[in-house]
Each structure stands twice: as C-alpha cells, then as structure tokens.
Amino acid sequence: METLLSLTIGLLIAAAVYLMLARNVLRFLFGMLLLSNAVNLLIFTAGRLTFGVPSFVPEGAKLPPEDAANALPQALVLTAIVIGFGLFAFALVLVFRAYTSLGTLESAKMRVAEPEEEKA
C-alpha cells in the first residue's frame, strides 16, 4: 500500500503544481490546498502505515500494543492540517480582497506595487 500511496501523492503534487502555475489565483489557491493535503499524506506515509491498530495505551497497560501505529507523524500531521487551514483561509480572504480592490483574478495583472511602465 505504501507504494500505491506514494504514487498517489506524486499525482496529487503534480496536480497541485499544475494548478499553482495557473494564471487565475483561485486555481493557485486550489493548488495550495491540494499541496497541503499531499504533504500531510507524505509525512503520514513516511512514518509507515499500520492497519487498524491506533496508538492507544489499553486500559490496565502501560504501553500500547507492540504493533500500534506510529504516533509521532500523526501528531505532526494534525498540527499541519490546522496550520494549513489557517493559511488557506487567510489566503482566500486575501484573494477575495484583491479581487474587490483590483477587479481581476489574474496574478499577472496585479501590479499595484510594480506597474508595468516602470519596467524600462
């Protein structure tokens, strides 16, 4: 399964990169969302996959079962998901604001700070 998931992650990243290179900043945002999903999956997969044994310490025991899932990448991914959400939500508002102020969604046309004329 790790192999299949690796290839899936590769595809997700490819889709994300393709979208981020788009002219429309909304597509860029979609790409960013896919990218954060892909990276989360990547960290998770790199910590090895375990089928059906969550990392819990059973009642009465001091240690989790021998074959329990790797808890560390899960904790990292959990943090990353939340941070990714914060980033995405803010970026979305920024794009929305840029659209209402500049009237365009094309990144190449957003040139308030560096107008084309200055490119002598």
């Binding site: 192999t3 690796s6 290839l7 992650i9 590769g10 595809l11 997700l12 990243i13 490819a14 889709a15 994300a16 990169v17 393709y18 290179l21 788009a22 002219r23 429309n24 597509r27 892909a38 990547l42 997969t45 790199a46």
Partner: peptide, 22 residues
Amino acid sequence: DHRPKDAVLALAVGGVVATLLL
C-alpha cells in the same frame, strides 16, 4: 487554460516527490 509545458513541470515535480518517498 491549457498549459502543456506546466503539465510537464508538474509531473516532474510529482515524480521526484514520489521517488523520494519510495
């Protein structure tokens, strides 16, 4: 919005990441 060149680059990045993970 069709961009074949971007698609090549995107697949290259994806391929590299998949290989790295493997």
